[in-house]
Amino acid sequence: MNSNKMFFLFILFFSTLISISSNSWFGCWIGLEINLLSFIPLISHSTNLFSTEASLKYFLTQSIASINFIFSILMKMTLMKNFEMNNFISIMINSSLLMKMGSVPFHFWFPNISEGLSWFNNFLLMTWQKITPMILLSYYLNKNFIIIIMTLNTIIGAIGGLNQSSLRKLMTFSSINNLGWMLASILISENLWMFYLIMYSFLISIMCFFFQLLNMFFINQLFISNINYSIKMFLLINFLSLGGLPPFIGFFPKWILINFLLSMDFFIITFIFIMTSLIILFFYIRIIYSSFLFNYINLKWMKIFLKNKNLIFINFLSFLSITGMILSTLIFL
């Protein structure tokens, strides 16, 4: 991680802070633009054609979204003097923010772009880049629209990911699915959303970290049995956790969210959510089956070395992933 990257990373974080702590819509827009501006250098490498293409696409989509955002804000300011609630304008604002996030039906850029990014950049794209649009969304939410969108999110995330073999695209579709859950949590309360985001980021960070370490981008690369045995087990547990199986920590946010959704009587939506999470679980398990649960021939010409300090980090994270729920009951008792 060289100093360039650290610089742009810093500006990225700062831009989010600008956006969420401003008291004017303009400030939000400024934050969004700075976000775009600082993310592009993080992505693009002049040597790699894929990442250049990805950065270009990213720039195009995000700038269109930003322009629509500022346009809708100005229209809102002009026509309604910032006080009333109008359906169409709120839908316009929400649409542009949804496009920023990569939510259905404006998500088509998301899998495309993530194919060209490294795992760390993917991690940023999947977690950090959602914060600003989400918070801005919560300022001017159109409930009916968002309900439709979040349902579609979960469905598309599940169905789209079923036929993929690239790990990055898979993670993207799972991110779209979880985006649906996050939109649901925004409907209820911002605290809840923050909790969900933290849990999800924790899980995704472990996954991205693992894949970064092993330098794997496709499912068939996971067949190598040279990987350390404990790494494989942790991969298994974290995938199951991500899928939302109790008693791992990934179940925790889903549990809380279902509870609150049902207390608001959203029966059908909750049903669709849980059924699509089953589909997502299906293809997670398909991945880990191949890698973890079968014995393959040991390849002698390909070895994967792991440094010790990485191992400690992995162990700690996975311990947290397994026992997180139980420990949290001790804290919140």
Binding site: I258, F282, I285
Partner: peptide
């Protein structure tokens, strides 16, 4: 095994919260 059980028991979760 996994999916038969989960397919039926996730609605159970919904019922419990109800």
């Amino acid at each position: 095994l996994l999916f038969y059980t989960l397919f039926a028991s996730l609605p159970l979760l919904m019922g419990i919260f109800y």
